[in-house]
Simulated assay, not measured.
Amino acid sequence: MGSKSAVVVFAEAEPRRAFRDAGLTDHDKSKRLAEITLGATAQETGLLTLDLAVWPDSGIVCAASLPECEVVCSRELARYRPSELTEWILRLANGRGAYAVFMHSAEDWAAFAVWSDGALVRSLSMNPSSGVMEDMGEHLPFEFPFWEGERSVRNEPNYALPFHPIDFGNEALREFFGFVLEGREDELCFDLEEFEVPAFRAVSQA
């Protein structure tokens, strides 16, 4: 499967903690969140473990309203320029912070963005064919090892970027949410298969 993600999380506090302390999912609020994302009435199709929910099938939105955060996953949210989502993000954030991580290993593309206090504060998107497509705001601490050469690409002298975007994207997942799709897990990572997210699709109109 590789690393594929299209996940946005809204949280008052650190989303990594919110995932670890997650309580029961509010089904009604989750459905409303899915309907806002779909722009249509939604029906639940079942539950997906988080490793599958972060990249659901086209037309499916995985949404979970938890006590301390809300999670939305949809391929249609993935943007080469995450800043394009700002209006939608701020409408749903209601004053909370928002965190997005998008990536697709087939094209070695990764992007992430952070919104806080009603504004986009950091956005980065890159792949080797297009280079850096968006780079807004100051580097966050977890980025430093990448930009300072500690995670440089080895054995690929002609690689177009200073590090692999997929490695970077997985580190963003670890930093924000406490899990990785590929790479080294640490003691703070949780098991994605133990976390289930409701999946929804738009109701067909007769």
Rank of each mutant, 00 (worst) to 15 (best):
E175C: 05
E87W: 07
F19P: 04
C62D: 09
R20L: 10
D191K: 02
D26Y: 05
A111L: 14
T49L: 11
L173H: 09
C189L: 01
W55N: 05
A11C: 11
G183P: 08
Q43V: 10
G39E: 06
L24T: 15
I89G: 06
E148D: 13
H164F: 14
R91K: 15
H164L: 12
A206I: 09
A18Y: 04
V114T: 04
D117E: 15
L192N: 03
V7K: 01
A202R: 11
A18I: 09
I60L: 10
F176P: 11
F190Q: 02
F19R: 05
P145V: 13
S5F: 07
V71W: 13
E143G: 14
S116L: 13
E12G: 02
F19C: 04
F200Y: 13
G2P: 11
F163M: 05
V132G: 00
R96D: 04
C73W: 08
L66I: 08
R122A: 11
A111Q: 07
C73G: 04
A110Y: 00
G118V: 02
E44F: 00
W88D: 12
F195C: 04
L120G: 00
E175H: 14
M133K: 10
D186P: 01
E187L: 06
A93S: 15
A98N: 09
C69P: 11
G23H: 08
L92N: 14
L90F: 03
P67C: 13
F112M: 06
I166L: 08
M136V: 15
A42K: 02
H139P: 08
G39M: 05
V61P: 08
E12W: 08
R32E: 10
L161P: 09
E187A: 02
R17C: 01
C69V: 04
L173T: 12
T37W: 01
F179T: 13
V153H: 06
L33I: 05
V72I: 15
N155Y: 14
W109Y: 13
D108G: 06
G46L: 06
D26P: 06
S105R: 09
A64M: 14
C62V: 07
S129Q: 10
V114D: 05
S116I: 03
E87A: 12
D186W: 01
E87G: 09
S74I: 03
A106G: 06
D167P: 02
S130T: 03
V72K: 07
R96M: 00
N94Q: 15
R79G: 02
L52R: 12
L48F: 11
P15Y: 09
S74C: 02
M126G: 01
T45I: 15
E194P: 06
A6M: 07
M126N: 00
N155C: 10
A206L: 11
